[in-house]
């Protein structure tokens, strides 16, 4: 048998072996879905509504930029801050950021005006180190009071300005106990 014949026979045997191997596909087999479901992330959000200024007489101030304070004026800024916390292990802290008391403008008023530290209240006061849970989601009321002291004398602080623009709120998630820190 020449070499060509031997090669053809070897090729034929190889093909037969392949056919034999194909036969294993016919045996029983089964596949199952793991049914792991979907992983859904939670939420952390903070939305501040439009705040409202009122003076000591309880009169609403439509535009604080057009209002001019005088000694004895006490203005209060109230604002609803909507907190959303979703997640089985979600915890967070809500804090006031920026300048409050003795902030920008205090010098311009010659010390005759003060802005209180902003307070956050949801039933009771929300302290800076309070740990909020998803059940604490909802409206938190923020309040800041500006006082132009009656003790101002002469023409102290006429036409002065006091910026409260730096005040804000921060909602920061706290690491779950089992956090992987990655």
């Amino acid at each position: 048998m020449n070499k060509m014949g031997k090669g053809a026979i070897a090729t034929g045997v190889g093909v037969l072996l392949l056919v034999g191997g194909g036969g294993t596909l016919a045996t029983w087999n089964q596949a199952q879905n793991a049914s792991m479901g979907s992983v859904v992330s939670g939420d952390l959000n903070l939305v501040a509504s439009n705040g409202k200024w009122t003076n000591a007489a309880g009169t609403a101030i439509a535009d604080i930029s057009a209002y001019r304070v005088v000694p004895g004026d006490v203005l209060t800024y109230t604002q609803d801050v909507n907190v959303t916390l979703t997640g089985d292990l979600m915890t967070a802290k809500l804090t006031v950021t920026g300048v409050g008391a003795d902030g920008t403008g205090s010098a311009a008023f010659g010390g005759a005006a003060t802005a209180s530290a902003t307070t956050l209240t949801k039933g009771t006061q929300v302290l800076p180190d309070a740990i909020l849970k998803p059940s604490d989601s909802g409206v938190v009321k923020a309040s800041t009071t500006f006082t132009f002291k009656s003790s101002a004398t002469g023409r102290t602080a006429t036409n002065a300005s006091y910026s409260l623009g730096n005040i804000g709120y921060a909602l920061v998630q706290q690491a779950p106990a089992s956090a992987n820190n990655s």
């Binding site: 952390l44 903070l46 501040a48 036409n159 002065a160 804000g168």
Partner: peptide, 13 residues
């Protein structure tokens, strides 16, 4: 984490 401004504005004497 998230942060929002209070937009309290400026008080003018």
């Amino acid at each position: 984490n998230t942060a929002v401004s209070a937009n309290a504005g400026t008080i003018q004497a």
